[in-house]
Every structure is written in structure tokens, then in C-alpha cells.
């Protein structure tokens, strides 16, 4: 392009007769040289840029692998020393190749920036049998086994937590409706009205529990980690994953709460609490074990207390505790039903 322009210039000048052939040649060559130099410089720039990008990428890759590998691989090795044989066996049973695959893929998988779809796909990278294994692991406590290390293995998914929460919301809302229907069944002039409000309230309560408590716990563990070195540390998503799966046990419990009997409800709460609460406690105990004794106990009991508070709160709020007591007049039952939630919050 540039050469052509220079040529046109020189030809016009030549036509005017002011320049001689040598000058034109010189001009021509000069123009050629300049354009060649410019092109070379551009090429250089491009190469430079490419090198830079690759260096940066390489650095990033290293950085991510270090940050991911650190919490998961070091404690694993250290924890594996005392009880080596049973844990190894479990790893084999659960598929060692799987863990190898996840560890190999961990580096490039996490390198996708957060605004891309691929970044979020890494949190849904689970298969049916993995999800079932995780659910099983969350409701069956094995003494001395760590849920995160055994099932999640640096591949926390959001599929389980999200859909378990959604199922729990509708399980609570639907069985709450059915139980209030059963309580009032057979009463004269009782007109059943579905309470859709329960879905909204249950969704707010459960989703905030499943996100805010892990957030608070993660912040707390980070803070403690900066003061006292703990061997085990969890990432935020691992904590969310543990909490999400730990809510699974409440789904069958919520279905059992349909039975209008306080005894059955309390038994189901205690059983659910013992199963998933102990999994939670066993998971987070190693993370606080090296801390001061008092703080460790307090953290673990706070986790357990919040877990039981959710269950008791849901049961009290969404399920009519009255066991089919006949109201004095039909109008009173209607108003009582509306006042009831406000009374209970007091």
C-alpha cells in the first residue's frame, strides 16, 4: 500500500520534471524500506505480545495449581499417615482413577474466567453415581471419615446443593399444606385453601441458610486460619457443597411431618439431626481441631445448633402443631390460622 503511494507520488513528480531518475529511485527505495521496517516492527510487536501472553498464562496456571493443590494434597498426605490402610481401601472402592482425573483436570479447568459459561460448567461436572454417593455419604456417618475428603475431593459441585434445596423447599411447602389439610379435615365448613405463601417463605429460609451459614463459616475459618495454623482448610464451595448435601436428610423428614403427631415429628427431627449433624461435625472438626479447645467446641456446637434450629423452625412454622382440636366456631379457625404465624414469632 505504502509502496504504491510512493510510486504514484514519484510518477507525478516525474511528470512535472523537477526530479530526476536517481531521486525517484531513492525515494522509491526509501519508501520501500520504511514500509518494510514498519512491517517488521509490527511483527515484532505481535511476537512480543504473544510471548507475554504465554508467560502470563503459564504463570497463572502455576498459580492456580499451587492454590488448588495446597489445601487438598498436603493435608491428605498428612492425614493419610495415621490410618493408612482403611482410607486407601476406600479410595480404591470409590474409584482412584476418578480422583486422578479430577486432579489432572483441576489446573486447566479452573483457569476459565468467571464470566464464561465454562467456568460454571466446572461446578456441574458430576455424574449420577457421584451425586448418589455424595447423598449417601451425607446421611450415613462413618466415624473418622471426612465427607469432603472422601466424596468431594476438590471437585465441589453446585448441582446437589441447588436441587436438594429446591426439593426441600417444595417438600416442606407441600407437606405443610397437606398437614394443615389433614388437621382440618372433617371439620364442618372448613374450606381448604392452598397456601402458596409457604413456598416463598420456605425458599427464602432454606436458600439463605444454605448460602449464608457457609459464608459465615468460611469467613470464620479463614480468620482462625490466619491466627492458628490448621492442617485442614476448606474452600467456600466445598463448605457450600457439604451444607447442601447435609440438607438432604430433611426431605424425607419433611414428608414424615405430614403425620399429625408431635411424637413422630420430634423423633424424625432427632434422627435426621443425629445423621446429618454428625456428618457436619465430623467434617468440620478437623478444620478447628488445632485451635483453642474452647473455640473448637464452640464452633462445632454452633454448627450443630444452627442445623437443628433450621429443622425445628421449619417444623414449628410450616406445620400445625395442634392435633385436630375442634374450634369453637368456624370463623375463629380462620382467624386463628392467620394469627398463628405472628404469634409464634413472638
Amino acid at each position: 500500500m505504502k509502496v504504491e503511494l510512493v510510486a504514484i507520488h514519484s510518477v507525478t513528480l516525474f511528470g512535472l520534471g523537477r526530479w530526476d531518475v536517481e531521486d525517484i529511485l531513492l525515494y522509491f527505495l526509501l519508501g520501500f524500506e520504511i514500509s518494510a521496517a514498519v512491517m517488521a516492527a509490527v511483527d515484532d510487536l505481535q511476537f512480543q505480545e504473544f510471548d507475554d501472553a504465554e508467560n502470563l498464562l503459564a504463570a497463572n496456571r502455576d498459580a492456580t495449581t499451587i492454590s488448588i493443590g495446597d489445601p487438598s494434597s498436603n493435608p491428605k498426605k498428612q492425614r493419610r499417615v495415621p490410618g493408612a490402610t482403611p482410607r486407601e481401601e476406600d479410595d480404591d472402592l470409590l474409584g482412584n482413577d476418578d480422583s486422578d482425573k479430577t486432579e489432572l483436570l483441576a489446573g486447566p479447568k479452573k483457569s476459565a474466567p468467571f464470566w464464561t459459561f465454562e467456568y460454571y460448567q466446572t461446578y456441574f461436572d458430576v455424574e449420577t453415581h457421584q451425586v448418589l454417593d455424595r447423598i449417601k455419604g451425607s446421611i450415613i456417618p462413618w466415624p473418622g471419615k471426612n465427607f469432603v475428603r472422601l466424596y468431594i475431593r476438590s471437585n465441589p459441585d453446585l448441582y446437589g446443593p441447588f436441587w436438594i434445596c429446591a426439593t426441600l423447599v417444595f417438600a416442606i411447602a407441600i407437606s405443610g399444606n397437606i398437614s394443615s389439610f389433614l388437621v382440618h379435615l372433617g371439620l364442618p365448613q372448613y374450606h381448604y385453601v392452598p397456601e402458596f405463601r409457604k413456598v416463598t417463605i420456605a425458599a427464602t429460609a432454606i436458600y439463605s441458610y444454605a448460602w449464608l451459614v457457609p459464608l459465615a463459616l468460611w469467613g470464620f475459618l479463614m480468620w482462625r486460619n490466619s491466627k492458628v495454623m490448621n492442617l485442614v482448610s476448606y474452600s467456600f464451595l466445598e463448605i457450600v457443597c457439604v451444607y447442601g448435601y447435609s440438607l438432604f436428610i430433611y426431605i424425607p423428614a419433611a414428608v414424615l411431618w405430614i403425620i399429625p403427631s408431635e411424637t413422630v415429628r420430634w423423633i424424625s427431627i432427632v434422627v435426621a439431626m443425629c445423621l446429618s449433624g454428625s456428618v457436619l461435625v465430623m467434617t468440620f472438626w478437623p478444620a478447628v481441631r488445632d485451635d483453642h479447645h474452647r473455640i473448637a467446641i464452640a464452633t462445632v456446637s454452633a454448627i450443630a445448633a444452627l442445623h437443628i434450629l433450621l429443622a425445628v423452625g421449619c417444623k414449628e412454622y410450616f406445620f400445625d402443631s395442634r392435633e385436630a382440636e375442634p374450634p369453637t366456631e368456624p370463623a375463629a379457625s380462620m382467624t386463628a390460622k392467620q394469627i398463628l404465624p405472628t404469634m409464634k414469632t413472638k
Binding site: 458430576v126 455424574e127 449420577t128 436441587w163 429446591a166
Partner: peptide, 11 residues
């Protein structure tokens, strides 16, 4: 992964 996709549809 079929079951993981079918379950939300069911719900």
C-alpha cells in the same frame, strides 16, 4: 448424566 437432567424436570 441423564438422571441428573430428568430429575429437575420431574420436580
Amino acid at each position: 448424566r441423564r438422571a441428573l437432567v430428568v430429575y429437575p424436570v420431574f420436580l
